[in-house]
C-alpha cells in the first residue's frame, strides 16, 4: 500500500499544495481533481518518485519509496501525460520495448492481443509518428492491458484525446483492476464514473 504523509509541493516560487495525507489500500481509487496548474501532475510524479517532495514522505509498505527503489518500481505502472512512444518504431515494437524496460516480458502474440484490445490491430506495423493523437494514446494505454500484474497504476489524464468507445474500454479495465485488488491513482478533466471498492477524492487548489 502507498501512503502519503504531510506532502508538500513547491514549483518555482509557488507552493502548490501542502499538508496532504492519504493512504491507498488494495481496491482504492485515488481521484485527483483540480484546476490547471494546481499540481495534479506534480502529485502523480511525486507518487512515482520522479519528483522529490519539498516536505513530507511517501511510503510503499511502510518504506520510503526512494529507499524501496527497485521493489517499489516493480509494483508500479506509470502512464504520464506524454505517451512515451518512439515515432520511429511501430506500435507493436513500442509496446513490447516499453514493457520490457518496465520489467515485464511480453511476446509478439501478447502485444498483438493488447493492440487488438485497443482496436489498433490493423495499424500495428505503422510507425507511431504517423498515428493520430488519439491512436497514440491508445497504444500507450495498451500497456495497461499487459500490466495487470502490477498492483499500483498511476495514470495522468488517461482519457485525453480518446473516442467514446476507447474511454469505455479503458474505464472497464480500470474498474476490473480495482475490483481485483489493484490500486489506481488518476487525474482527469472528464466526468468518467468509475466504481471502486474505495474512492478517495483529492481536490487540489481548493
Amino acid at each position: 500500500m502507498l501512503s502519503a504523509n504531510d506532502l508538500e509541493c513547491v514549483r518555482g516560487e509557488r507552493r502548490l499544495f501542502s499538508g496532504l495525507n492519504f493512504a491507498m489500500q488494495p481496491g482504492t481509487l485515488l481521484a485527483v481533481r483540480g484546476v490547471n496548474g494546481s499540481g495534479k501532475t506534480s502529485l502523480l510524479r511525486m507518487m512515482c518518485g520522479l519528483l522529490t517532495p519539498a516536505a513530507g514522505t511517501l511510503n510503499w509498505n511502510d518504506r520510503e519509496i526512494g529507499k524501496a527503489g527497485e521493489e517499489f518500481r516493480s509494483n508500479l505502472l506509470y502512464l504520464g501525460h506524454l505517451n512515451g512512444l518512439k515515432d520511429e518504431l511501430n506500435a507493436a515494437e513500442n509496446l513490447r520495448l516499453s514493457l520490457h524496460i518496465a520489467g515485464i516480458a511480453v511476446d509478439e502474440a501478447q502485444a498483438v492481443a493488447a493492440l487488438d484490445w485497443s482496436g489498433l490491430r490493423e495499424r500495428r506495423h505503422q510507425p507511431c509518428g504517423t498515428l493520430s493523437q488519439g491512436q497514440r494514446r491508445r497504444v500507450a494505454l495498451a500497456r495497461l492491458k499487459l500490466s495487470q500484474s502490477r498492483p499500483l497504476w498511476i495514470l495522468d489524464e488517461p482519457f485525453t484525446a480518446l473516442d467514446v468507445a476507447s474511454v469505455e474500454r479503458t474505464r472497464d479495465l480500470i474498474v476490473d483492476h480495482l475490483a481485483g485488488g489493484g490500486m489506481v491513482a488518476l487525474t482527469t478533466h472528464q466526468e468518467v464514473p468509475i466504481t471502486a471498492p474505495t474512492t478517495l477524492p483529492i481536490e487540489l487548489g481548493a
Partner: peptide, 21 residues
C-alpha cells in the same frame, strides 16, 4: 528525444538501476 517523448521517464521508472540503463 527520449526526454521530449516521455520514454526517459520510463527508463527512470524501470525496476533496473538507471545507471546501468
Amino acid at each position: 528525444s527520449d526526454h521530449a517523448d516521455g520514454t526517459l521517464e520510463q527508463l527512470v521508472l524501470s525496476p533496473q538501476p538507471l545507471s546501468m540503463l
